[in-house]
């Protein structure tokens, strides 16, 4: 799939933002006044900034309101509803903390649940797609959730949990990659089943339907060199997980936490880039190109 910058930015930043909101909602930590203002502003900037970035991906952003209507069947619609519900709830909860120094516990808990639901709906947009076997797996939500929670805990300064969550997320990520490499073959979609001509013999593409490019090829048949991908995986693993874990083991200092966060975000951006670039859509089979 084509790694669109807007979608990569969205899922990375808003994932982190909603992760942070989750911990703020749980009261980990309980902050009030200016501290609360800073924490909530940061979380909202990340979450809303990500959402805004994703609307740049739309052909007709002016019709975006319609996207709230089909929550019965569509994960994308559910994501829109969940994100707005989470943001509104957390805004009310945050306002209590900032302006009245009052913590409305149930509101925070509901906001935390909605925040994490938003991350879940984002991941389900990808996990639901049978057409992309690498994504169509329960471990895709697990990956998104663990990354979001680890990042959120890091920014929220929850050092003990952060360490555990980072180890879990790194394990999830590594397994997701290694198992993901085998999912296309396991799903059993081939040129033979795509064309139905497998009974006759081995099928290969003889002439493509068009000599130029088209939407399908630009959007869904993105091919990335294997070596390139492996190098990026190493970068993502190092920056996204290893560096923050090492920093967390050192004595605490706010500058170090900031550094760990920046490194983590850079690593996750790389990881998201590969998430799209490596994902092969079955339509590639018709073009004799998996990818």
């Amino acid at each position: 799939m084509h790694p669109a910058l807007s979608v990569i930015l969205f899922s990375t930043l808003s994932g982190l933002g909603f992760g942070l909101l989750f911990f703020l909602g749980l009261g980990l930590p309980v902050v009030t006044g200016w501290m609360a203002f800073a924490a909530f502003t940061l979380a909202f900037l990340l979450a809303v900034g990500g959402l805004l970035a994703s609307t740049f991906h739309l052909g007709h952003p002016e019709r975006a309101l319609r996207a709230f209507s089909q929550w019965r069947t569509s994960w994308l619609s559910r994501e829109a509803c969940a994100s707005v519900a989470a943001l509104l709830t957390m805004a009310a909860y945050g306002a209590g903390l900032v302006f009245a120094a009052t913590r409305i516990v149930p509101l925070g808990l509901i906001g935390a649940a909605l925040s994490i639901c938003t991350v879940l709906t984002t991941s389900m947009i990808y996990a639901q797609l049978k057409t992309v076997p690498r994504w169509h797996h329960w471990s895709t939500p697990a990956l998104f959730l663990s990354i979001s929670l680890a990042g959120g805990a890091l920014v929220a300064g929850q050092n003990q949990i952060t360490l555990i969550l980072f180890v879990v997320a790194a394990a999830c990520q590594s397994w997701w990659w290694s198992d993901g490499d085998r999912r296309f073959a396991r799903a059993g979609h081939t040129m033979a089943t795509a064309t139905g001509l497998g009974q006759i013999g081995a099928v290969r593409s003889f002439a493509p339907p068009h000599t130029g490019s088209n939407y399908l090829m630009r959007e869904m048949i993105h091919q990335i060199g294997r070596k390139h991908a492996l190098r990026l995986r190493a970068v993502a693993l190092t920056l996204g997980y290893a560096v923050p874990i090492l920093i967390l083991l050192a004595p605490q200092h706010w500058a170090l936490t900031t550094l760990a966060t920046l490194s983590h975000v850079a690593g996750i951006l790389a990881s998201r880039w590969i998430f799209f670039a490596e994902a092969e859509h079955v339509v590639g089979l018709y073009y004799g190109k998996r990818g």
Binding site: M1, H57, L58, G59, H60, P61, R63, A64, R66, A67, S74, L76, I125, Q128, L129, K130, T131, V132, H189, A194, Y215, L216, E219, M220, H281, V282, V283, Y286
Partner: peptide
């Protein structure tokens, strides 16, 4: 007139 051009339906179609 209701399509926002998100492209998700094209992703979901196995047949291009």
């Amino acid at each position: 007139s209701a399509c926002i051009g998100c492209g998700l339906c094209a992703w979901a179609c196995p047949y291009g």
